[in-house]
Amino acid sequence: MGGCLEAMKPEIILSQSSFKEAREYIKKNVREYHEVEPGYKIFDVHIIGVPPLYIGVEGEHLIFPYTKPCHGTFVVKVPGGEEIARLRARKK
């Protein structure tokens, strides 16, 4: 896991899933979600996969897919900080 993200002690919502399962989870379970392009960087990690890829916002937290080469895709929840404003400010 990226050092910065790891230090944030993320809550693991889904583990070792596929990137498609992660996409569906966020779409179905998070009311506010934003589409981002593959390679979008959040904290020190990239969002990896085939479009559409989503990052959810729930209160002060972000919920997003984190892909590890050996262990599949995790859906993680961390405090969003300034990343929430950056995400919302993106052009649709």
């Binding site: 990137f19 593959p38 390679g39 990239h46 990896i48 996969g49 085939v50 479009p51 892909t67 590890k68 080469p69 050996c70 262990h71 599949g72 895709t73």
Partner: peptide, 8 residues
Amino acid sequence: SGIAYAGT
């Protein structure tokens, strides 16, 4: 994960 990286 390999598919995800290739798609990226």
